[in-house]
């Protein structure tokens, strides 16, 4: 049983974790303080024969203090969170130089569309993969997220990334991974009986590897007459 978060491998993971640990400390202190006081009072002021409780209706000074302190703390917390929240989620902060991928969620799989040879999304040069999303390392990735049927949620814990995929909306968000490797992609929003099995993989490749993979994909796509061919070999590509 651990209070530590699994290691994060995106640029903003560290900041999110820091905020988490700050809150953990604050709440931890409050927790220990209040519970300790509670236990102490229970023991110290247990029934004494002939004993009598102090007849007091309160103490305005004390009450003002323990209203003011939490207020300061939580507002400070709120403001601290705001900056980071904007950096991560505010569309205005989306990287302009990011590698763009259109991800579409459906019961119960993830389809990713990559800008093909022409380098822009939404043309028929785009090629697709299913449940295996390839991204370059150390380069911002901008996801255009949507859903075809119900609400799903794109979540990669190692990246500290979570974003609902809502049918009828295209939501853009970004992340930048700092470690090559394979990371599990999960669906965090209940989306039907297959919700629990709607997993995928995000494959993070070093720049050269990624270039190579992309080139191979583009070639495959150009060569293929049938769109689906793009997805076929993908299943066993490693």
């Amino acid at each position: 049983m651990s209070w530590f978060l699994p290691p994060g491998v995106s640029t903003y993971a560290a900041d999110i974790d820091r905020l988490y640990y700050i809150i953990l400390v604050i709440t931890g202190v409050v927790f220990i303080l209040t519970e300790a006081l509670l236990i102490y009072f229970l023991i110290r002021y247990r029934k004494r024969d002939g004993g009598r409780a102090e007849y007091s209706h309160g103490n305005t000074k004390a009450e003002v203090i323990w209203t003011a302190i939490p207020f300061v703390i939580v507002v400070a917390l709120g403001l601290m969170s705001k900056g980071l929240w904007d950096e991560v989620k505010d569309p205005a902060h989306l990287p302009t130089d990011g590698y763009e991928i259109a991800v579409s969620a459906r019961q119960f799989e993830w389809e990713a569309r990559y800008p093909g040879s022409d380098g822009t999304l939404g043309t028929d040069a785009d090629f697709t993969t299913v449940n295996r999303i390839h991204v370059p390392v150390n380069r911002p990735v901008v996801i255009h997220l949507t859903a075809e049927d119900v609400i799903h949620s794109f979540s990669v814990y190692d990246f500290r990334v979570k974003q609902d995929a809502v049918p009828g909306m295209t939501i853009r968000f970004w992340f930048e991974v700092t470690e090559p490797g394979e990371y599990e992609l999960g669906c965090a929003e209940l989306c039907g009986f297959g919700h629990y099995s709607m997993g995928g993989t995000v494959i993070v490749l070093s720049e050269p590897e990624f270039q190579a993979w992309e080139a191979e994909r583009i070639a495959l796509h150009e060569g293929s007459t049938r769109q689906v061919a793009a997805a076929q070999p993908d299943e066993e590509d490693q």
Partner: peptide
């Protein structure tokens, strides 16, 4: 107190729907 974690939106990214 656990509510405070979730109230902080950036932290909620990690723990929402968990």
């Amino acid at each position: 107190l656990s509510g405070i974690f979730m109230a902080s939106a950036p932290v909620d990214i990690q723990i929402h729907d968990t």
